[in-house]
Amino acid sequence: MTAQIALQPAPTTRRMPRLLFGDNQFFGVNHMSEEKARQQAMRFQDVQSIVDVLDGAYSEGISTFMCTTHDRIGEICTHVRAHPERYQDFAFYPCMPYAHKYADAVTEEGMLGAIRRFLPEEGVFNAAFRGGRALATKDVEGIITLLVDAEMAAFRGVSTPVIWLQNVIVDLLLGLDFKDAFLIFDEHVRTRYGAEPGYITMNLPRALDVFEDIGLVNPIVCSNINKIGFRMSGGIEKYQAALRDRQFRAVAMSVFASGAIPPREALEWVCAQPQIESIVFGASSRANIAHTARLVAQFS
């Protein structure tokens, strides 16, 4: 299956859009309330209800969907593939992996069993062979690239200009000091998918140190950036210093701190920070999307 993925043109360092649309609201992720998360999960059970909101965002000029590699994302990709004219400018920024499916598989089958379960196996001799060989020889590069390919399978035929490594993996690797993994991911995303690699982290200052150390130039890094310093490990001052002094392409997430900061105040503060290329946000209604877009335009 992975062998069928067409190589795309060499990577370009195009600027990312100012607003990226996130997916937490669609999959029952809410950092404020489990009850609200459940209500959202119910509301977005059907793909059509997700597509309706994405269409709303698209109509407001927000055409980039930054989404986890959740099983249900495949259905969205299918929809977009089926309507090429309608979604001509629509892009996905996949964030991989969706960690819970791995964590639960580890509980059930152990670390190796879990990796085996998620390696591509759809009858492609090459991938299966590469997988078995990579596991046997502890070929970390082989395992990482195969897992990336498995996660990317759902995105065949849609545009994926930026491919993200999720924070739980980035931060696990940062803590372990497992630096080579970043280089492997970086190289694979650029060469196989013609995309820009991005890194999500809850530890921005530390991540930038490591990326500089291993020679990643001007990396795309997404982290919580909000006025109250919520989940900004290392402290808000260090984050602000990084935005001022370090060279990287910053994407701000959790700008409303899970709803703890009113939208106007939150966006005014974020837009005043230097060097933020994009802001990722989630919303469930066209009105809220339009409101956010208006405020960002006003403050940018």
Binding site: N203, I228, R231, S233
Partner: peptide, 13 residues
């Protein structure tokens, strides 16, 4: 909410 009840940490995983 967790946003007001949570103390920041040196490292978040």
């Amino acid at each position: 909410y967790t946003t007001e009840l949570t103390e920041p940490t040196w490292f978040y995983l």
